[in-house]
Simulated assay, not measured.
Amino acid sequence: MGIMQRTAELIGFAKRSAEDTPSAPPAIMPPPRQHVLNDTTAMLILDVYRAVEVLQIGVSQLGLDQWRGDRRTSPASIIVKPDTETHRPAFLEWSVVSLALDGNAYWRILRGMNREPICLQPLNPAEVSPVRDEKTGRVKFYWRGLELAPGDRTGGDIVHLQKLRKPGREKGLGPIEAARVELTGTMQARDYSSTWFERGDVPSGILTTEQQLNGDVADEYKKRWMGWNPETGKYEPSGHGVRVLGHGLKYDPLQIKPADLQFLETQQFNTTQIARLFGIPASLMLAVIEGNSQSYANVEQDWIAFTRFTLMVYLREIEEALSSVIPHGNHVRFNVDALHRSDTLTRYQAHEVGIRSGFLTVPEAREIEGLDPLTPEQLAALTPTQETTNV
């Protein structure tokens, strides 16, 4: 048998012939299952689910502001409610999840009588295919096999958001596709540990002796230990009673520690790998890395780093996409203050410093806290000291 044939057999691309098949029982390690990795099966991995959930929770807390130059203006209706069939947080969550899993998100622009955008319809990334026309150089989008009007980022009928762009590639590269090998290994390790007791090839114990036994004698002792009754010709296992064996045989139960059975070290390694893949701090993954101590200050810094170096990648892509469907000269920005909110006492002390220093007013501080504006009567009742010191 050639080396190529043997290699193909080992990795499962070829089957052994009958004469090459050994008569010995298979090894304890079973052949790996055939795993199909996609955005659906990847979400069945606990750590992937948690990583995507953190991204989803992060974007759902944020507000959207519309700006013209350096002045904030009233947002357009399509910014207040991008998709008429759902609320804005759900629309933003859908976009982030699509980017995190597939590396792409698609919005179909539905227009009104005057061609103004009135709705952004989210599409399933698995049903959209962008193709660049070799003649025109423009990108055509096919949705469920049907060609839609060619679109671009500045006014086409399809808005295409991408996670990681690569020259010469029309689709974004998402974490699931980029780490296909690592995530498939995680799925295999999970399935192997979860089916440990269900498999019949894992022995409950080992019979050993210092004497030499031939195959027939060894098989006979094995059958006797497992409850074989030579008189009835049947196995009659029993969980109780005394078993007597000769030839100096000794039975050692195969005991596995719970930590080893659950592959805790492997799970911890997989959690770290997936957290690194999605850019999620360990504290947000609810995981503890050995040697690292968590404190309030550390967790707060984790949130800042997460916002700046992970979540902002998604937010900037959504901001630019939304800015492309509103009147020219306007742009959209997320208000990320909600992610950096400290405890109540610290915030109020910061407001007091701002008001005393003169760069923050009472109405501005109330707006930051989400409080209703003061009425003219309440403003008139404030003393000069209160106007500068009280929130």
Rank of each mutant, 00 (worst) to 15 (best):
M187Y: 06
M187S: 09
M187Q: 14
M187C: 08
M187F: 05
Q188A: 05
A189R: 10
A189K: 05
A189D: 09
R190G: 13
R190L: 11
R190F: 08
D191I: 00
S193Y: 05
S193H: 09
S193P: 03
S194D: 04
T195G: 06
T195I: 03
T195V: 03
T195W: 01
T195N: 13
W196D: 08
W196V: 14
F197N: 09
F197S: 11
F197P: 02
E198L: 11
E198R: 12
E198K: 09
E198F: 01
R199V: 12
R199F: 09
R199W: 13
R199C: 08
R199M: 10
G200N: 04
D201W: 04
D201M: 01
D201E: 05
D201R: 07
V202I: 14
V202F: 00
P203V: 01
P203D: 00
S204D: 05
S204F: 01
S204T: 10
S204N: 06
G205F: 03
G205N: 01
I206C: 07
T208P: 08
T208W: 09
T208H: 11
T208C: 06
T209A: 09
T209I: 14
T209S: 15
T209H: 12
E210H: 07
E210F: 04
E210W: 03
E210K: 13
Q211S: 12
Q211I: 06
Q212L: 04
Q212K: 07
Q212V: 11
L213Q: 06
L213S: 06
N214H: 03
N214R: 03
N214L: 03
G215C: 01
G215N: 06
G215M: 02
D216R: 06
V217K: 09
V217P: 00
V217D: 12
A218Q: 11
A218N: 07
A218R: 12
A218S: 14
D219L: 14
D219V: 07
D219S: 15
D219C: 05
E220Y: 02
E220M: 06
E220S: 14
Y221I: 13
K222A: 15
K223Q: 14
K223Y: 08
K223D: 15
R224D: 01
R224T: 07
R224F: 01
W225L: 12
W225K: 08
W225S: 05
W225P: 02
M226C: 10
M226P: 02
M226V: 02
G227S: 04
G227T: 08
W228A: 13
W228E: 12
W228T: 14
N229K: 11
P230F: 01
P230I: 01
E231T: 11
T232S: 15
G233A: 13
G233P: 13
K234N: 08
K234F: 03
K234D: 09
E236T: 14
E236N: 10
P237I: 00
P237R: 07
P237M: 07
S238F: 06
S238E: 11
S238G: 14
G239N: 13
G239F: 09
H240N: 11
H240R: 13
G241F: 01
V242E: 07
V242T: 13
R243G: 00
R243C: 01
V244G: 03
V244T: 14
V244R: 10
L245F: 09
L245C: 05
L245I: 07
G246P: 11
H247E: 13
H247K: 15
H247V: 09
